[in-house]
Deep mutational scan, measured.
Amino acid sequence: GYDPNALYCICRQPHNNRFMICCDRCEEWFHGDCVGISEARGRLLERNGEDYICPNCTI
């Protein structure tokens, strides 16, 4: 089920109804503003069928 207190992202904070994006490599969720991806950019990636790779996986 959905846990509203689950911690995500590099900031280890809950979802808090903020835009989030999922890394296509590790499948962890990240707040867009923490990883520099706007909601519009996230939608563009999705539309173009491009993967989002998080900072942890791009090292």
Rank of each mutant, 00 (worst) to 15 (best):
I59F: 06
F30A: 03
L7H: 13
C26I: 02
D51W: 01
V35L: 09
A40W: 05
M20I: 12
E46M: 08
C23S: 02
N16Q: 11
N5L: 03
Y8A: 10
A40E: 15
C9Y: 01
R12H: 11
L44H: 13
N56Y: 11
G42M: 13
L45Y: 08
R47Y: 03
I10L: 07
C11V: 00
G49K: 14
C57S: 00
C23L: 00
R18I: 04
V35W: 02
D3L: 09
C34S: 00
H31D: 02
V35K: 03
C22Y: 13
R43A: 14
H15M: 14
F30H: 10
H15N: 12
C11I: 01
E39G: 04
T58S: 12
L45H: 14
I10Q: 05
C26N: 00
R25W: 04
Q13R: 07
I59D: 15
E39W: 06
E28C: 09
G42N: 15
R18E: 09
C22N: 11
L7T: 10
A40G: 07
W29K: 15
P14H: 09
A6I: 03
G49C: 04
D51T: 10
D33K: 09
Y52L: 09
R12T: 07
R41I: 06
H15Q: 06
I21V: 14
I59S: 10
W29C: 12
L7A: 14
L7W: 08
L7S: 15
M20Y: 03
R41Q: 05
D33H: 07
Y8V: 11
L44P: 13
I53D: 02
D3E: 11
E46Q: 04
G1N: 13
N5W: 01
D51G: 13
C11L: 00
H31S: 01
C11G: 00
T58P: 10
Y52I: 05
G49P: 10
H15S: 14
E50R: 04
R18W: 05
G49H: 13
D3R: 08
T58L: 14
E46T: 13
G1W: 03
D33N: 04
R12G: 15
D24I: 06
G32F: 10
C9M: 02
F19S: 06
C54M: 00
G32M: 08
G49L: 07
R43Y: 08
G32T: 13
D33L: 08
I21R: 06
M20H: 03
S38G: 11
A6W: 02
T58F: 04
C54P: 01
Y8G: 08
L44N: 13
E28S: 07
Y8W: 06
L44A: 11
C26Q: 00
I10H: 13
R25C: 05
N16P: 04
Y2T: 15
C23W: 00
Q13G: 04
N56G: 12
S38D: 15
R43F: 03
I21P: 00
L44R: 13
V35P: 03
Y8F: 11
E50G: 08
P4S: 13
P14I: 09
A40I: 13
W29A: 14
P4R: 12
L7C: 08
G49I: 09
D33M: 05
W29P: 12
Y52M: 02
I53G: 06
L7P: 06
M20G: 09
R41A: 12
C22P: 11
L45T: 07
Y52D: 02
G1F: 12
R41M: 08
P4L: 11
P55D: 01
E46V: 12
E28G: 11
D33C: 10
L45K: 05
N56I: 04
C34T: 01
D51C: 07
C54H: 04
C54D: 00
R43G: 13
C57I: 00
W29F: 14
G36W: 02
C22K: 12
Y52V: 06
F30N: 10
F19H: 12
C9T: 01
R41L: 07
G1V: 15
C54S: 01
I53W: 10
C9W: 02
I21K: 09
I21G: 02
R12F: 05
Y2R: 15
G32S: 09
C23R: 01
M20P: 02
N16A: 06
I21F: 04
R41V: 12
L45W: 06
E27H: 04
C34P: 01
D24E: 11
A40P: 06
I21W: 02
I37Y: 13
C26T: 01
Q13P: 01
N5R: 04
H15T: 13
R25V: 12
E39N: 09
C11D: 03
A40L: 11
R12W: 03
Y2V: 07
C22Q: 12
R41W: 02
E27T: 10
W29Q: 15
C26V: 00
I53F: 07
G32Y: 02
R12Y: 03
C26K: 00
I37T: 12
E28F: 09
C57M: 00
E50Q: 15
V35G: 03
V35R: 03
G36A: 06
